[in-house]
Nucleic acid binder design. Structure first.
Lengths: 238, 238
DNA sequence: CGGTCTTTTGACTGCAATCAACCAGTGTGG
DNA sequence: CCACACTGGTTGATTGCAGTCAAAAGACCG
């Protein structure tokens, strides 16, 4: 472990799979701590921005987005969550975002009091929060400084485990070529609201990548990358 | 406490003062847990993006920014921190951002092992992280969906405690008028990199607000708001 | 006072937003 | 089975906001 001064259970080790991070290691789930499971269909709202905070959630299966709205209808998707991610935390007594499922999901709910009293849960929570925080930093860079093409390319790279990040392993030498298939599980509108773009711009960028033969569309939300490294070059990170 | 189902020590109560939140209550400091104090001058780097993670920090006095760079030099300031805020957490073994002071600051350092073993510190940490997370959500909305003018206005409102947020108290009836003085403690370049704009655009927006008599410049980083409510109208939140 | 650095202002350009059609897939009912 | 509506996605034409490039105006300092 070169250059690393720490390797304790709390702060080291890659965990979770929030978009914007690319780690793989499993982390503990709320079910281990007595949380109760709840299922949602695709495009269901778990809670609305402004609702009173009652419980804490952990995503167990599927994917889910958190978004905020301005009074005139502008929307910003602030996080796209994957299995293991935490949501439902708030400073005050109201949620600061709306939580809406993207796919069929399974969620663990847990009482706030229970979290407070359990050291194990606390540590779990911290670990998740740090990861999600790093993803938010990365996303701030995307929203503040990247071009439309770079945003879309970065978004695609988010979806590929172990690639594009600081721990990128490069093309797998075991596998012929460096291709990859992606399922977006998001509409163009959701992608646009996540990337701070319009639906038309997202569509145009994707069409352009298609024309440049960087990608191939199997379906509108199923995309094949010819070579992952090519996509990575477009993200602005290299 | 209308509409609030919870009021335990961990997740309720307004805490901290990170930009993007407007709360006031004091929270515990690391000094109480045996952290060591360290002083920095203005524009000093505490650590660089990519440095190995060794310690956790809490800002005690002054203000500090976290930023990320792209290889071509584009910069995004991802957080501007105030007293009480935590920084230096990372998923892996390296910092994901550079931490640089904006003013003379005082920082408490604490060993990661110590945090892991203390329930009190853990709770403290969680509280801070949730607040900073909410600020990042708010900032994602700013970067993804707001106009240049709305960004600058929102930035100014960040700097005013108890105004503009969900718990906005409106103009203080005790005080004649609704004016307010602000110290920015940031150069135009830093503001631009925080708001995802260029230095010229920030300057133009400020000139325009001046022409519209919404603000008056005492110095280039000292600004008087004629009426806070007027500024708030420009943020896009209302 | 000149020299350096930050901020402001001006002229122009370009990227992404807007407005508007069009297209493809899906479901419904006569 | 086809006509129809409806939804989500794509493409085209045009506009406008913020970026870029360039220069002037202040601010600060030895």
């Amino acid at each position: 472990m070169p250059n690393s001064a720490v390797s304790n259970s709390l702060f080291s080790s890659s965990t979770g799979a929030t978009l914007g991070r690319r780690a793989t290691t499993q982390r503990a789930r709320f079910e281990d701590f007595g949380g109760t499971r709840r299922a949602f269909a695709a495009h269901e709202v778990v809670y609305y921005e402004g609702d009173p905070v009652k419980r804490l959630f952990q995503l167990s299966e599927g994917s889910l987005m958190l978004y905020k709205l301005l009074p005139d209808g502008r929307r910003q998707v602030v996080e796209v969550l994957q299995a293991g991610d935490i949501f439902g935390l708030a400073e005050g007594s109201e949620y600061d975002c709306t939580a809406e499922t993207l796919t069929k999901t399974s969620v663990y709910e847990i009482d706030l009091k229970k979290v407070e009293s359990s050291v194990g849960l606390q540590q779990q929570l911290t670990k998740c929060l740090i990861g999600q925080m790093n993803a938010l930093h990365e996303h701030a860079m995307l929203l503040g400084r990247k071009s439309a093409t770079e945003r879309v390319a970065s978004f695609f790279m988010y979806l590929i485990p172990n690639r594009g990040g600081p721990g990128c392993v490069g093309p797998d030498p075991e596998v012929e070529g460096d291709g990859c298939d992606l399922e977006l599980h998001m509409t163009r509108q959701e992608i646009a609201d996540y990337l701070g773009l319009t639906i038309e711009t997202v569509s145009r960028v994707i069409s352009d990548l298609k024309k440049r033969q960087v990608i191939r569309l199997e379906k509108s939300d199923r995309i094949h990358l010819r070579r992952v490294c090519d996509m990575c070059q477009i993200t602005g990170i290299h």
